[in-house]
Design a protein around this nucleic acid. Structure first.
Lengths: 337, 337
DNA sequence: GGCGGGGATTTAGACGATTCAATTGGGCGT
DNA sequence: ACGCCCAATTGAATCGTCTAAATCCCCGCC
């Protein structure tokens, strides 16, 4: 009744286990008649390979861990899609883990993945200097940072977040805005602080622009709404006339709060988001956003990992950096109204 | 350099492998001094248990597969959250798989999970009569259907979708609507057809109500927008005045199309969605929706699975059915305007 | 001083698939 | 008719961990 093993298959087909294994792995060296007999036996018994045994013997598993900050964020699901597509080509399985921007959960996932001796891990870490990560790498698990640049000893695939911040900032300043809000968080997250640094640079260059910072714990729709209410409540004299928001989910919440508060977008409040998720294009007021090639990020990260896994030795870590694009839509575009 | 095994740990601590194993699994039977020595050795070498070997030896793994129709849908991420929470308590890991409403992908995931000899599988199947599923169960993998009622030989956790359809239908009819659209798809999906059956029932009871059906392939924001444009283009004499939409993502897209087309919600078009995801509450016009207890669904499904795994024999399959709630918000509520 | 008791530790198989060296057997050349 | 060669198949060892049974050793008791 229990799942049959290769042994039972062999017995039923009247051959040795070695032959069954050969049918599974090098069918061409087995005589056609024998091969057929074994295959019949396999389907008659409903034999299914035991991955654990394969893994143990082979010394390497066939799964890759992918740890993201928020599975509910389409940016990460797109990214996962890209990673999975390439994994599929390499006969490899992706284990998707959601850290929810929580270092404890992240740590737990890393522990589990290491115990499973995954081929490698793609991760958007909460903190890329986390000693747990370093230790993991030292113990021999290949790690590729995703959506986050690595300094040296690691491969990484990222997008130039400072450039993204500058693009958004320039766009808003050139549209005439002089009071701009930056919303995102936690500020300790590299992605957020880089985007902030980007807009800060161009704001300082412009000289006469006031940049107000708003920090959130988690970048979701609900939090965006809350900040939006807070901003809408400011006296109109000091209220920013534009907001650069570090993530589209947050931006969508913010946008909704504007409409509830009776502020028109972009007339009373211009908005530029980040990630350019599908929702952004389709929002009540189509959202301007800094586009990141999410799927490509995932794909490239997996590419680097597979490269590292196969090359083993003589692998040189690489840091790939993509350029973001500013997509201007109605939420920040006066002319179109 | 390779990851050390229990053997190296034992050697360094000057004990046998059995003792190391005992420290890991029944520390209390090991003398304190020895235990300490072993633990020092473990941390000095950076030893990490090999899950594959454990699994092989134990004959059962510690991971559970969760196959959902769409990870990008917050309903399923909430569900996953619930499942994962309970899994955590059982020292079990969840492997999240995204079938994207595609039977081929679904099948691939099931194969992988079976090869990994997962403890069991929670799945929202594309088609619950899929012979592959049956075969899987026959071969001994416990399966619990999620968000979908099983007939007999399986545990399941679901929500009464017909009731949901009736709630939405009654609400719209009592608000005076006589031309109502039902939007969702594919109609072959049980969830969709049940919700449709529900509203059909009450429409027929009312007698003088016209129900128009619109089918989509995939229930996402983009598709909702497309259908919305299509509906908005209908001559106002025959255009429905209300829409019951089988999923909130779809409803949000639809809502956006209304606003683009200049139709006011709910005055020109009342909308009731399904799932009550966070976005729904926070939409441009807060969306009425039939609420399903997503997290509870996930949790309960995992509960049933663990029960089945532990009881092994003498387990009786159970079909748990939850009641949905209609949450009325502005998108379908005249009085509030 | 010998012996039993019992706590601490060791030993020796599994678990299932893979691989490679060793073996078998059939056909062909001389 | 003999031997040789090669294709086909077999058998055994291995991966890392767990567990039940066996062994060890120290103590106290008679």
């Amino acid at each position: 009744m229990a799942t049959p093993s290769i042994k039972e298959v062999a017995h039923r087909a009247g051959v040795s286990v070695g032959t069954v294994s050969n049918v599974l792995n090098r069918p061409w060296i087995v005589a056609p008649a024998t091969r057929q007999r074994v295959q019949d036996s396999i389907s008659a018994l409903g034999f299914v390979r035991n991955e654990a045994a394969r893994h143990l013997r082979a010394g390497r598993s066939r799964t890759v861990g992918l740890v993201v900050l928020d599975v509910a964020n389409p940016f990460f699901t797109d990214l996962a899609e890209g990673a999975e597509a390439l994994a599929y080509e390499h006969d490899t399985v992706v284990m998707l883990c959601n850290s929810k921007t929580d270092p404890v959960r992240e740590g737990h996932h890393l522990d589990q993945l290491e115990q499973q001796r995954v081929l490698g891990i793609l991760i958007t870490p909460f903190d890329s200097n986390d000693p747990r990560l370093t230790a993991l790498v030292d113990r021999g698990t290949p790690v590729v940072l995703v959506d986050r640049a690595a300094d040296r000893g690691l491969c990484s695939v990222s997008v130039d977040d400072q450039l993204g911040g500058r693009l958004a900032g320039n766009h808003l300043i050139q549209s005439g805005h002089r009071r701009i809000a930056f919303i995102g968080g936690p500020f300790t997250m590299q992605q957020v602080s880089d985007r902030m640094a980007g807009i800060t640079t161009v704001v300082e260059q412009a000289g006469n622009v006031d940049l107000q910072l708003f920090e959130v714990d988690v970048m979701g729709v609900v939090e965006g709404r809350a900040i939006g209410e807070q901003v809408a409540a400011l006296p109109s004299r000091s209220r920013p006339t534009a907001a650069f928001i570090a993530n589209d989910l947050l931006a969508i919440g913010f946008l909704q709060a504007m409409s509830v508060a009776g502020l028109r977008v972009p007339r009373d409040m211009a908005i530029v988001g980040y990630d350019d998720i599908d929702f952004a294009r389709a929002a009540a007021v189509p959202l301007s956003s800094v586009r990141q090639p999410a799927e490509l990020l995932g794909r490239s990260a997996m590419e680097l990992l597979q490269e590292e896994v196969e090359a083993a030795d003589r692998h040189r870590h690489r840091q790939v950096i993509f350029q973001p694009d500013l997509i201007v839509r109605e939420s920040s575009d006066f002319k179109r109204r």
